[in-house]
Amino acid sequence: MITLQDLRKVYATRSGEVVALDGISLEIPQGQIHGIVGQSGAGKSTLIRCLTALERPTTGSVVVDGAEVSVLSETQLRRARRRIGMVFQHVNLFEARTAAANIAYPLAVAGVPRAERATRVAELLDLVGLGGRGDAYPAQLSGGQKQRVGIARALATEPAVLLCDEPTSALDSATTRQILRLIRDVRDRLGITVVIITHETSVVREVCDAATLLADGRIVESGPLADVVTRPGSKLSQALVPVPDVGVADQRTLVQVSAGGAQAQIAHALYAIATEPDAHVVAGAIETLGGVRVGRWHLDVPDGDRAAVLGRLRAAGLAVEEDVA
């Protein structure tokens, strides 16, 4: 549904060129909820702006719903954008219009007749759980309600793709959960492809089927969550299932062991760790992601018989990483 090929975006600034995206290739299948994570400055926003053609890539191709958006003319682009819905961090509702009028705006732009617009707006308000609040102005709605209107507006023209740029970053945790549930619900009902840009790995954990980690304009890692979390040495997995930071005494080293898969694997890993006499668990986390159980532990191992301990843990089927900072 979305195909990026060797996407590059270079900005010319006074102090020289800044490479915002450096060779991004990515394929997002229809109906997937794909999270794009990375720190600020990693290129997430530039990436989503290239998807909407608010920015033109320097080189490379962006195909959304069968259309190569980077080469479209202005008029063609206006048409293509109706197939792309966009949800913003700051919602960007039109404050001079009611919730219903906000949702009707894309329909008016698309030339949908007035009577049809009213029916569609009522359906959309119901879809996002705001039936009956159509006459409210944005100033009269809570943050979560505003984002619901924002989602309804993005869905108005029945797009094939829903792009969400930090959709929950301005919301509290309870509201975040509701909005994410709504996004998933919308995907399940409409079969729409969703891309969520976020700096919060909790968003990916909660709603995404697949994720891509960006750093310095490049893809560090990408894949379905079930694959990613069990990948040894995975940075993304590390970010998705973080282990709390704990110090370690002199003459001992911190190592990280991880296991993933079904419940049996986790139980097996726990047994191996518990029965290892020289290693002490100092921190750990177990999560279920994309239907897969994943566990990660930090063990405190004496420098002396480190090799022997790690050998036994590896033999028990655990992935071992040494020198955890």
Binding site: T52, L54, R78, R79, R81, R82, I84, M86, F88, H90, N92, L93, F94, Y105, P106, V109, A110, R153, A156, T157
Partner: peptide
């Protein structure tokens, strides 16, 4: 007028004039 509102309008395919 917040630039985001302008972007939101352009994103639904509105022309600049509109």
């Amino acid at each position: 007028v917040a630039p985001g509102k302008i972007e939101a309008a352009l994103m639904v395919g509105a022309s600049r004039l509109r």
